[in-house]
Amino acid sequence: MFSSFMTNAWIVGTVVALLAGATGFFVVLRGSSFAAHAIPNGAFAGAAGAALVGVTPLVGLITFAVMASVGIGASRRHRSDVATAMALVMMLALGAAFLSLSAAYEPQVEALLFGEILGVATTSIAPVVIIASLCAAALAVMYRPLLFNAAAPDLAAVRGLNPQRLEMGFMLTLALGAALTVPVVGALLTFSLTVGPPAAARLVTRRPGSALVASMVLSVITLWASIAASYQSNLPVGFFVGSLSALAYVAARVLTQWRGRRV
């Protein structure tokens, strides 16, 4: 389980989980789960487009992720879920068209959706670490405005905080993270880690800093447990990440309800 073949999976998995936990804290805070789902899923269509044009998949991923995030970020606040849905289906449909025109292989599509974390190449470690650090830095810079805007948007606007710019900055951060993590761990795995553990974390503490740290820790534990379970059982990692993430949230809910009051 800790053989050299698995080392890359542990390293990349940990970095991705830390990033998903941190991003997810704000995703849950802002109610941006739909965007967090749409951006990586749409981005994967970009890889198909890149194959058609004949450039490296990363270019397609970044192009599509940024397009999606700009489309979502620029939408009116009212009914922004409609804009997200439309951006998502448009990109997926484009992906379908690209695939049918370029005759790419199905297994490649599947890999982009479900990921190949157990087969991570050593060369993809450095880019993942670099992009994750960039995203983390962006989140740190936006930390207080994101918190303020999520808690009391009107008051934040009165203090001169531009909500549009903040939303755009956050969406671009999501896009950057998605473009890099999708080919490594798959769109679905990232999304599960982005919602379950953070939603659980904020139930168990009322301090914003602790909730952020708890979210990252819970996300890493979920992923580690999933990799170990997958290794032992030979079942897909995505299954364990998905179900353990959901379980983490349900457990936190039961725990707070059982304690009878919120912290």
Partner: peptide
Amino acid sequence: PQKVALDVDVPLRVRDFVALGDDGHRYG
């Protein structure tokens, strides 16, 4: 304001919220 749209689920203590009145609009 008379009415505030406040997200009650945000993990924020009163003192965190009050402090955001000072620096919540600042990036960095």
